[in-house]
Simulated scan of single mutants.
Amino acid sequence: MRSVAAGAEEKIKELIVEQGLGPGDPLPTETELMERFGVSRNSLREALKSLQAMRIVEIRRGFGTYVGTMSLEPLIEAMAFRTVVGHRQGRGSLLELLQMREALEAGLMHRLAGRLPEEDLAELDALVARMHTEVREEGEIAARTDRAFHRALHRSLGNELLSELLDAFWSAFHRVRAQGLGTAADGEELARMHARIVEAVRAGDAEAAEAAVHRHFDDIRGRLSRH
């Protein structure tokens, strides 16, 4: 049955592409799909459940099946779980995930330096100021603030897939870190590291911006190693 369901999966994906459907658009009914693909209801439902797990379709009970968000959430879950399992087995999986983030973010500095619009730079300044406030009042930088900083930093690239991938790496890494891996950061120094990135980008100094990113990740790497 699985091979039949797998074939139905591919046919549903082909249908979405051929008809130019996007997130939220309705798919044909189960009966119509069964007749179109020549498969049983069980095989079709198995295919739809698999596609739903990948966020390619969304099954709304009582309403029908729709094209899903096609988000990278399944990738985030898989990366986070793989990293945790590898770490528990004594492999350097968390450091590998960190290295992937570092390579992407540092490599983008040459495209960002001197090119961010003023409104984005102002938002980054405000986020750094919020980091300092959170450290004084809460003792640490909130994850949502750190995430907002990295999103704002890369937004001007205008590459939705790249932004989603960077956010996926961030989410996977922080889901793993939430399990208590690594020592606590010096919040004030962490905020200053983010400020240095903004300063270098504003000045159009790509090399300094890249170096600031590497220093930021060196700090994280050092705390993970001490743990």
Rank of each mutant, 00 (worst) to 15 (best):
Q19R: 11
Q19P: 04
G20P: 05
G20T: 02
G22Y: 11
G22L: 11
G24C: 04
G24D: 03
D25W: 09
D25E: 14
P28W: 01
T31M: 10
T31F: 06
T31R: 13
E32V: 11
L33A: 05
M34C: 03
M34W: 03
M34Y: 01
R36V: 01
F37Q: 02
G38K: 12
V39R: 00
R41L: 10
S43K: 02
S43I: 07
R45P: 11
A47G: 05
A47Q: 01
L48E: 15
K49G: 15
K49M: 15
L51N: 08
L51K: 10
A53S: 10
A53F: 10
A53T: 06
R55T: 10
R55W: 08
I56H: 00
I59W: 05
R60H: 10
R60L: 09
R61D: 05
G62C: 00
T65S: 01
V67T: 00
V67C: 01
G68Q: 11
T69R: 09
M70G: 04
E73N: 05
P74I: 00
L75C: 07
L75W: 07
L75A: 08
I76F: 13
I76S: 14
I76G: 12
E77V: 09
A78Q: 13
A78N: 12
M79G: 08
F81E: 11
R82S: 05
V84Q: 06
V84M: 06
Q89D: 15
Q89F: 13
G90C: 04
G90Q: 09
R91N: 10
R91Q: 10
G92P: 15
L95K: 08
E96N: 08
L97F: 04
L98G: 01
Q99I: 09
Q99H: 15
Q99F: 13
M100P: 02
L104G: 14
E105G: 10
A106S: 15
G107E: 15
G107W: 14
L108C: 06
M109R: 14
H110M: 10
H110K: 13
P117Q: 06
E119W: 07
E119C: 09
D120H: 13
L121S: 05
E123P: 05
E123L: 08
D125M: 02
D125P: 02
V128S: 06
A129L: 00
A129G: 02
R130V: 02
M131S: 02
M131Q: 01
T133P: 08
E134F: 00
V135T: 04
V135K: 03
R136A: 14
R136Y: 04
E137K: 04
E137I: 02
E138V: 07
I141Q: 02
I141F: 06
A142N: 08
T145V: 11
R147H: 05
F149G: 03
R151Y: 03
H154K: 14
R155S: 14
R155A: 15
N159T: 05
E160P: 04
L161P: 03
L161W: 03
L161D: 03
L161F: 02
L162P: 10
S163E: 15
S163T: 12
E164T: 07
L166V: 07
D167W: 10
